[in-house]
């Protein structure tokens, strides 16, 4: 490929490319915002920059409200991918936790207790999956595929194959705005910050990168490989539980079928945000940007009246492009 040669030979390119690559999600987002500038419906509502519906206050709230659930899932997925794993069970786990959360609230359990319980179960599910991978030495793909199937089944059994409705608005406050942004959006920002600190500033974080980079080398260097993997999956489970709570607040019911396919959206956000699927490379800020990119793309396509299915086609192209650009850099 011509581009490959340019990367290999060009001196200036050699320096700029890693930077471009590191911030590829951001570059994509900026380009998307530029397109939005010229290509969205106009409005005369106050507070809208450039008289564009896309840059209105209402849309900021809209985007961050939509971002919270996929964003939390994507942050969890980033940890798992960083240790060289993958989690196909995230969508099913979120569906089950959504049902648990709704059931507890419908039966009158206190809100803090319900939230704590859902977070606990989520973390537990993640830890168990991580432990099974360590114990059986099976591929994370296979173990979490099994988790995806089983957890979905459990969700249907748990709810007796029916939606859980009749929730009062105990957790509706997650949807209400604080300083113009829904509280769910603030929680996502908080989770992103916490994820960044864990990865950049703790011993555990450095071990996560070491394990994903080369698990054999990490083992010989004295990294407790199994425990780090369980930790990463536990954090993923915690993030899934967080997403499930926010999902419950948004939908105000429990659906055993909730979250189908969300695990792939989460992986997409991480990949677009620059996380390498082979592990060991990436961070949660990139993932946040990746998830934001995808939500902004969805919103822009709707505002432009483009059919959902056409949008899906383009999303595939973007994923390919993102991974291609990453691999280019690695071969330099």
């Amino acid at each position: 490929m011509a581009i490959d040669k340019v990367v290999r030979s060009g001196g200036a390119v050699r320096k700029i490319f890693p930077i471009l690559q590191k911030y590829q999600g951001l570059v994509g987002l900026v380009l998307l915002l530029l397109v939005a500038l010229f290509d969205t419906p106009h409005t005369d509502a106050p507070g809208a920059l450039f008289h564009s519906v896309f840059f209105s206050v209402g849309n900021l709230r809209n985007v961050l409200g939509q971002l919270a659930v996929p964003g939390c899932l994507a942050i969890g997925a980033t940890f798992v991918i960083l240790v060289g794993g993958i989690d196909l069970s995230a969508g099913s786990a979120m569906g089950l936790l959504n049902c648990i959360c709704a059931t507890w609230l419908v039966h009158g359990a206190s809100t803090p207790l319900t939230i704590a319980y859902v977070l606990f179960i989520g973390t537990l599910i993640g830890s168990v999956l991580g432990a099974i991978i360590g114990f059986t030495k099976l591929q994370p793909f296979v173990v979490t595929l099994a988790g995806m199937v089983s957890l979905r089944g459990i969700a249907f059994v748990y709810t007796n194959n029916a939606n859980i409705s009749g929730m009062k608005d105990q957790i509706a406050f997650f949807e209400s705005p604080w300083l113009g942004i829904p509280i769910a959006g603030w929680i996502l920002l908080l989770a992103t910050a916490a994820g960044t600190v864990i990865l950049a500033k703790t011993v555990f974080g450095r071990r996560v990168y070491a394990l994903g980079g080369n698990s054999e080398a990490a083992r010989y260097a004295g990294v407790p490989v199994d425990r780090v993997r369980i930790g990463a999956f536990a954090i993923n489970g915690f993030c899934i539980a967080l997403a499930a709570i926010l999902f419950t607040a948004r939908n105000s019911n429990g659906q055993p079928s909730a979250g189908m396919g969300y695990e792939l959206d989460a992986i997409t956000a991480a990949v677009v945000g620059g996380t390498a699927l082979v592990g060991g490379y990436g961070n949660v800020v990139g993932t946040f940007v990746g998830a934001l990119f995808i939500v902004c793309l969805n919103v822009l396509l709707i505002l432009d009246g483009v059919s959902y299915y056409v949008g899906q086609g383009w999303k595939g192209v973007i994923i390919l492009l993102a991974v291609y650009l990453q691999n280019l850099g690695r071969r330099v």
Partner: peptide, 25 residues
């Protein structure tokens, strides 16, 4: 290369949004 990548991305986005009316809008 930076320019190339940027313009490719931009082209894709514009085509993506513009094609709505002819494609599947």
């Amino acid at each position: 290369l930076g320019l190339w990548a940027c313009s490719a991305f931009a082209a894709i986005m514009i085509v993506g949004c513009g094609s709505g009316d002819s494609g599947g809008s």
